[in-house]
Design a protein around this nucleic acid. Structure first.
Lengths: 212, 212
DNA sequence: TCATTACCGTACTTTATGGTATGATTTTCT
DNA sequence: AGAAAATCATACCATAAAGTACGGTAATGA
């Protein structure tokens, strides 16, 4: 066993246990950060909810800031998957875009998505890299997918799109126009699925009238 | 001088001084809240920057929460004026809408507007009325003005708008699609005026292609 | 088996902060 | 001038939260 990856051997009982404990900590911390924000989340509360002792918590994450960074790292990564939406170039563009909008609005208005968005925006002043990382991982990627699709549709003569990156930005933001903004500001709680459908269809409708 | 308004006599040296002191406190507090957020703003720092003593500060605002509420009250009120934009029904609609978008994007992307928006969103979880008050005072009013204009333009046969409230929501949100989001997330700092013009013209262009 | 490593419980330290108390000083009103 | 109100400087209080220390106990690996 000479060269068996001294730094990161994937198995071994201890490493497994350690990894799962780390996950448990991140789960508890994420819930707390998302529902209470950074300042109102206390390490004590996390340790208490975790059941273990404070020393253990600090042995995994040596400071609150580092725990926060790890939580955001994981949350934004999974957020990217949450809002990743498939676009089928074989469908007629009206259909593909409408179905994209429905799924996108639904996911972006979910309570977890709203909470994460709030947290990121609220803390992006004090932790500037938080906003940038989130931007690259979520909105930028979604828009890239949409822009590629739109460029393809334009090439196939299905849409009159010249600047596909701009059009993608416009479409995805049209999906945030109504309920998402109200949800962010706490004006509404969690929108019904019929309201979501209507919202998405409005966004797609405007976009298709302009570029169809 | 029998009935000279016992509760709120506008002048009198003491009242004037008191009012101006209150303004000074709100100015200092607003700067701090906007640039550091609620939690990271300390009453000590405000008192120190103010120059006076702590007792005086507390004699004006008996708690940090009440000071915060007063700051937000004033800030959202002035924000409403900041983004209030005139729409001239005598102009051709392309011109009116394009000029609205330019001014709107410019104001909404100003550093103060971004900071306020961030603060409101970040704290709307712990102080739910903050988000609601802001919503009513800023986005809702702007949209109402726009919706009224669009309804008039539709009546005059200038635009093909059926749901003016929805169309207003879409237009104002199109103005936030690009730089505003990036500014909120700290991806860019403060956009140039040429970028603002381009952004606004894109929003107006899409809208007019769909409804023109 | 036995050394090692991780974990537990709990008490502790340190620092920061919202808020209070007080006695002296200045400003305002009559 | 002189009473009343406001302000100042400063010391103080209570609490809360991040982070540390430590002795004992359970799990892990050879």
């Amino acid at each position: 066993m000479i060269g068996s990856a001294a730094t990161s051997p994937p198995s071994g009982r201890r490493e497994l246990r350690r990894a799962s404990r780390r996950e448990a900590i991140l789960n508890v911390a994420q819930r707390s950060f998302l529902e209470r924000g950074y300042a109102a989340t206390t390490m004590n509360a996390i340790a208490a909810e975790l059941g273990g002792s404070k020393g253990t918590l600090w042995s995994y994450f040596p400071s609150k800031e580092q725990l926060f960074a790890a939580v955001l790292d994981r949350a934004t990564a999974s957020f990217r998957e949450l809002v990743a939406v498939t676009l089928n170039p074989a469908d007629p563009p009206e259909r593909a875009i409408r179905s994209f909008c429905r799924r996108f609005v639904e996911r972006i208005c979910s309570p977890e998505a709203i909470a994460l968005y709030r947290l990121v925006i609220g803390e992006s002043q004090r932790f500037p890299e938080v906003g940038r990382i989130f931007y690259e991982r979520a909105p930028a990627i979604t828009r890239k997918i949409m822009a590629d699709y739109l460029a393809g549709a334009a090439e196939r003569g299905q849409l009159m799109v010249t600047n596909s990156a701009l059009a993608a930005e416009q479409l995805t933001h049209l999906c945030l126009a109504g309920m998402h903004q109200r949800a962010m500001l706490g004006v509404i709680d969690s929108p019904s699925s019929t309201a979501i459908r209507a919202e998405a269809d409005n966004a797609a409708g405007l976009f298709l009238r302009a570029y169809g």
